[in-house]
Design a protein around this nucleic acid. Structure first.
Length: 585
RNA sequence: GGGUCGGUAGCUCAGUCGGCAGAGCAGCAGACUUUUAAUCUGUGGGUCGCGGGUUCGAUUCCCGCCCGACUCACCA
């Protein structure tokens, strides 16, 4: 294959595409890689190991908040690496802004430092940059300076650099790494690295980065090329960090309460555990169809039958449904099951969990999510106890249903018509109740609210209420109008369960698409005896949305589902040669 | 699937009531020894999403298509 820096038109790759499209900037950068190679360097070295991060640099300087500019800074020299986000050459000195993995921490440390500065009677510094600064003075190493900033190997925005130097503050007090300022350089490198330059391009950025001030805005590009989004947008990195905190917090919570984390099959032979359409796939050797799971529920309860009295699984579910701000075809669900508990016990547990996570992730049980109708920030409080309301109460309070009409399907349909809500004519009482409830009540369920006591008809796996067998011991938790969690006391009567599966089959026979299959093995498990158990599912993506104040599920999923990008996904990057190519055309 | 809006330089965007395509940043050349989105001077860069139609002439108007955002439907 031809050298990448070669500006001439490239022959098509046998696989049908050439390696990279080209524009002028990319050709310039590719040529620099060749120039380095020609100069005898390895263009993609892997022998540089940073000793400090940007956050380490900041912390190392906390003892000296004031500006100073010593010729030699005491303390050991350090090695740092990061991507070049800004270059500012001012005559014979240069300021490079680099970012490494500690960017979010750098942001926090800047705030922390300002608090210290104010306490020490100093002016606060600008906050908001997740980068750290490298200071390079030409007279430290004129040959290296010229190589870095002039000529055929000059660094570019987006390059990944390794720098050796000493922490210091510039005249204006900016915490910086002073490149090449080493009085004991011999100790910095050994072996093959001995004599290496103190500023090195570790990886050349061939593609130019988005504009430095506005950054990358286009949502499609942000989701498709998440790597660019992560390079450019601090907010995106913060969401990723918070999501990690949520996942860590969930595991810590359940681990500490003696739950066992388990993994159950992602590929199912039967549909169950939720009302949803599945993705189907095929097992070649067994020549049989398989479903990607829509829920782990039935497997987890089998484990409780087996004596694992407290289990949880944190993993993906797949539902073949439309995409929306709140729906992605694959989404992360935490389900946990606890023997000898009721759905009331789980409400208490969920309250505790959410308050803890809010504090872990945002620092407070009170947070802001979205805006009120008047445009002001909407406050949401995860302080226990959460509001609790039954479906019947909600129908009366928000849908304007008279108490006597709550179970009157004709009256309920009349209300739906009055509210301009279409409900499937084939829907039974329970479905009508829930459609009406969701339509009328959801907009009111802003603060965390447990909606309790659902119709048995729409809850084929839930335990019937002792006081009213048409209802079940079930709750859903709503926050900001979103369903976050669904839980119930589990149905452990195998005969009743068998009959409910039969009812599902009857609904399917009548054309309902989102019904469960008869799962005889599950019934068999119940026949061995499922202890009284309550189980709960928590939509992790939506929970992360709440804790990051994002309105789209695609913001909290690193690679949300997108239509294929034909050009790339089909391996058909055109063999484009820019029209100004000297030998093109 | 329906509705609305959008796709213009590497990025963020403006614009053309049909007549040589614009800015800022990035790039290139230069100045500048402490900048913070550095500044200043000069300068190169375009399949105006794709295809067809109307027209002397289409990036602009018309038709179709592709892609996206929002929204409705669907969907615990």
């Amino acid at each position: 294959m031809a050298r990448l820096g070669d500006p001439r038109p490239q022959p098509a790759d046998p696989r049908g595409f050439s390696m990279l499209e080209r524009n002028e900037m990319m050709r310039q950068r590719l040529a620099k890689i060749d120039a380095a190679r020609t100069a005898g360097e390895i263009p993609y070295p892997n022998d540089f190991q940073p000793t400090h991060t940007g956050a380490d640099l900041m912390r190392a300087l906390f003892a000296h908040l004031e500006s100073h500019n010593p010729d030699r800074t005491p303390g050991p020299a350090v090695r740092m690496a990061g991507r070049v986000m800004a270059v500012n050459i001012k005559g014979k000195v240069a300021f490079l802004r680099l970012r490494d993995r500690s960017g979010p921490e750098v942001l926090r440390l800047r705030k922390e430092e300002n608090a210290l500065r104010v306490a020490a009677g100093l002016e606060p510094r600008e906050e908001g940059a997740s980068t750290f600064q490298v200071f390079f003075q030409r007279n430290e190493d004129e040959v290296l300076w010229d190589q870095m900033f002039k000529g055929d190997r000059a660094i570019d925005l987006g390059d990944i650099l390794g720098v050796v130097g000493r922490p210091f503050r510039t005249q204006t007090g900016e915490p910086s790494l002073r490149a090449c300022l080493t009085d004991d350089a011999g100790a910095l490198f050994s072996g093959e690295q001995a004599g290496a330059a103190c500023v090195r391009v570790l990886t050349k950025g061939v593609r130019p980065l988005p504009e430095k001030y506005h950054g990358l805005q286009d949502k499609e590009t942000r989701f498709r090329q998440r790597y660019v989004d992560l390079i450019m947008n601090d907010d995106t990195r913060e969401i990723v960090r918070r999501r990690a905190l949520v996942v860590r917090g969930l595991r810590a919570f359940f681990d500490s309460r003696d739950y066992l984390e388990v993994e159950t099959p992602m590929m199912h032979t039967l549909l169950g555990g939720a009302a949803a359409r599945p993705f189907t796939t095929h097992h070649n050797a067994l020549d049989m169809p398989l479903y990607l799971r829509i829920a782990p529920e039935l497997h987890l309860k089998r484990l409780v039958v087996g004596g694992l009295e407290r289990v949880y699984e944190l993993n993906r579910n797949f539902r073949n449904e439309g995409l929306s701000q709140r729906h992605n075809p694959e989404f992360t669900m935490l389900e946990f099951y606890r023997a000898y508990a009721t759905y009331h016990d789980l409400m208490d547990e969920v309250e505790t969990l959410f308050a803890k996570l809010a504090v872990d992730v945002t620092g407070s049980p009170d947070l802001v999510y979205g805006t009120n109708p008047d445009g002001t920030p909407r406050q949401i409080s995860f302080r226990a106890p959460f509001a609790r309301v039954t479906v019947h109460e909600g129908l009366q309070r928000w849908a304007g249903v008279a108490a006597d009409d709550v179970n009157d399907v004709v009256a309920l349909r009349k209300r739906a018509d009055a509210l301009d809500l279409y409900i499937d004519p084939k829907a039974g009482l329970g479905k009508v109740q829930m459609d009406l409830f969701e339509h009328a009540a959801e907009p009111h369920l802003i603060q965390p609210t447990f909606v309790m006591d659902f119709p048995a008809e729409v809850s084929p796996l839930s335990r019937r209420k002792d006081s009213d067998p048409t209802l079940v011991d079930r709750f859903e938790l709503y926050v900001a109008g979103m369903e976050i969690s669904n839980a119930f006391s589990e149905l452990n009567d195998p005969v009743d369960q068998f009959e409910r599966f039969e009812a599902q089959l009857a609904q399917k026979a009548q054309g309902a698409e989102e019904t469960m299959d008869m799962d005889l093995d599950y019934v068999r498990a119940l026949e061995y005896g499922l202890p009284p158990t309550a189980g709960c599912g928590i939509g992790v993506d939506r929970l992360v949305m709440l804790l990051t104040n994002t309105e789209s599920i695609r913001e909290v999923i690193l690679f949300p589902h997108m239509r294929p990008e034909n050009r790339v996904d089909a391996g058909q990057i055109a063999d484009v040669v820019a029209p100004d190519s000297p030998e093109g055309a």
